[in-house]
Write a protein that binds this DNA or RNA. Structure first.
Lengths: 219, 219
DNA sequence: ACTAATTTTTAAGTGACTGCAAAAATTTCC
DNA sequence: GGAAATTTTTGCAGTCACTTAAAAATTAGT
């Protein structure tokens, strides 16, 4: 069967609407652009927009699933002998060093961050994504350890790791918005991050270490 | 001058609207009650409602400030020789034992919790309140220690404590909504909470201990 | 080309929320 | 006690996100 014309057009339309919307939002601010304007710019009706995207926020955060999966993926792909915490720390520091955007400190994306922060509804959505990200990490941990819903530890560890990341990233974003370039604050940020994870490590550092042998996990 | 008729009536009107709205929301669900209906029930115009409350959500969460101040207050009023973490743990366990609602596990308020959970906008507001609560705790800690904005530790500790509380309370709420009575789960909840704070303690337990002498704080 | 399934559009409405100006209530001043 | 100034309340018109139902256009299968 492959992919018919219909499905290709749908994919294209969806992507076009999302792209056009994102551009307009970044340029003029999320709250200063109406869905009607996006629809007009994308040459579709308003209802078509809502046909593809459940809410206005979804126009922008279309790749939310990736973000929400990030921590769980990092956990699952962690190296032998590496704990949850160590894996996340390594990945975050790596993102910081290579300037990758996956945790939120984008090179020169002031505009994007500023737009998100300026819109209450978008900020709310980001909080939702953070929650989902922590929940998925907790599920991944619980799944691998085989713990039941009565054991809160996976959820606790996930929430604490999430809290740490949010604090670090929030700090970085605040300084970026204050005018400092990512390059200038990167070294200090690295130190802060190491210190932050250090705080956690003594408490939960040894939790759920991936075993050397590719078999079952160890508590 | 004291308090004139005008100010008293304002206070009364505000309270009356909020009370009536809360009752309607709990009875029929937040999203199933329109602001217009609340206005009619309170015998005022819709504009008057919005004159007192910025958003529909504010009608319900009028005492949000208390909730947001809670952790900071517990921290400030902690006992001599008590760390931030110890103070919060003591207060939360106390609330659990005495059945106080301040952390969210209300005696028989299924209806209230259920209503909040069923409304996305209310859940979003709760997340905002959690964030504010952690921020205020962080500010209180930083203020007492005299640390600058460059030191992330207060924010990290506050976020981790917040994460722990949210996880515990979330667990309790989930079981409550599943039909278990608060009394039945209280002992288990207590164990869970102790375990949860234990996780944190090894890491940050000694942070910011209140000194025996009623003078400056100690790190 | 015809029919059935699917997508898009049109049309009409709901509900939160805003801005403005008139009306009503309250306080102040005399 | 009454006019004037002030504040509160209200009515009205409008914006915007979002919903629902039914026409209209497009595509798929034969």
């Amino acid at each position: 069967m492959g992919e018919g014309l219909r499905e290709r057009k749908k994919r294209e339309t969806r992507l076009r609407i999302s792209d056009i919307a994102t551009g307009m939002f970044v340029a003029r601010g999320f709250d200063n652009v109406t869905v009607a304007e996006v629809a007009r710019a994308a040459d579709v009706s308003v209802n078509t927009v809502f046909n593809y995207f459940a809410t206005k926020e979804d126009l922008l955060l279309d790749r939310a699933p990736e973000v929400e999966e990030l921590l769980a993926r990092v956990f699952r792909e962690r190296r032998p002998g590496e704990s949850v915490l160590e894996a996340v720390r390594r990945d975050l520091l790596d993102a910081l060093d290579t300037g990758h955007y996956r945790y939120g400190f984008h090179e020169a994306d002031d505009a994007f961050v500023r737009m998100v922060e300026s819109s209450p509804s978008l900020s709310a959505r980001v909080r939702e994504m953070n929650e989902a990200r922590e929940r998925k990490l907790a599920e991944a941990i619980a799944g691998e350890l085989g713990t039941g819903p009565g054991d809160l530890t996976p959820a606790l560890v996930a929430a604490q790791i999430g809290a740490t990341i949010r604090t670090i990233v929030g700090h970085a974003v605040r300084r970026m918005l204050a005018g400092e370039s990512v390059g200038a604050i990167a070294p200090d940020l690295r130190r802060q991050a190491e210190h932050a994870f250090g705080l956690l490590e003594t408490g939960i550092g040894g939790y759920c270490v991936r075993p050397e042998t590719p078999e079952g996990p160890r508590a």
